[in-house]
Amino acid sequence: MKHTQTFEGSTDLGADGSTGADSSRLVGSDRVLAVLKELARYPDGVGLEELTRVIGSPKPTVHRALGALRRAGLADQDARGRYVLGDEFLRMAFAHHEARPEHVRIRPALEALAHRFGETSRYAVLDGREVVYRAKVDPPTGAVRLTSTVGGRNPAHTTGVGKLLLAQQLDTLADVEAWIGSTPLVRRTPRTLCTAAALHGELRITRERGYGLDDQENETGVNCLSLPVYATSPTIPSGALSISALAYRTPLETLVGALDEIRAVLGPLSEPHR
């Protein structure tokens, strides 16, 4: 699938630094970032011709962007002449990821839960209308391929972690309506909650019970139980831990029934300290 990167209202810079007439093109810095993001979609490398088609900019401008990235060590060319992310980019990304205190502290719990249930465990934080996955551990065998990856995003209202964290912020129906605004909630599956009233009701229940559920609302056939994580503050969740499972193999009832065990594995990180 092609992913054309466009930035509304931007213009492309010509070789002399002037701007062209096509307002849908990318300016220099936007173009470089668009090329960098696109390279991440091709772990086996991508040729200049294909990258040019996907980005939607002229070949010389994409080539200049690649040159800038290569000089910075953020892109490289393999033996076949295809472009890949550079070692410096990977070094920075992994160094930054490993240095996050909540990631370091939550990792042992994720590993223990993945082994215990034979399902995928994850840690995510809320970012506006989406959740961002900071850590993920797959079980030794039988892992299901989920849409989430470390650094990936999903709509907050479709996920157990997202609804759990939203429940801490959106108390009233008016709060939910203001959060939704003029952009409709995306429907990921037939079970996705897509109205303010439905989401408000779910958030109220989530606050009362203290954990979040995703009943095949983000991916058909996959459910999830989520608990808050207090890794950086004694009173405000830094994010949420989740166990995502194949519904036929590990039903929600099984996860809810093991709630005390999951909390015990998470330990002090699972409870606020007032």
Rank of each mutant, 00 (worst) to 15 (best):
K2H: 12
K2W: 12
Q5P: 09
F7S: 04
E8M: 03
G17Q: 08
G20T: 10
D22M: 03
D22H: 07
G28V: 10
R31F: 05
A40C: 02
E49R: 10
R53V: 15
V54R: 11
S57Y: 10
H63P: 00
A65Y: 03
L74R: 00
V84N: 07
G86Y: 13
L90Q: 13
M92G: 03
H96P: 03
H96C: 04
R100F: 12
L113C: 06
A114N: 01
H115R: 13
H115Q: 14
E119N: 02
D127F: 07
V131F: 00
V132K: 09
Y133T: 15
D138Q: 10
G142D: 10
V144M: 08
T147H: 07
S148W: 06
T149I: 11
G162M: 08
L165I: 09
D175F: 04
S182N: 06
L185R: 02
A198H: 01
G201Q: 07
R204E: 13
R209W: 06
G210Y: 13
Y211H: 10
G212K: 09
L213R: 10
Q216H: 11
L225T: 11
V229G: 04
Y230S: 08
A231K: 01
A247H: 11
A247L: 06
R249W: 12
L252G: 12
E253T: 15
I262C: 09
I262V: 15
R263E: 15
L266H: 01
L266A: 04
S270V: 12
P272F: 10
R274A: 14
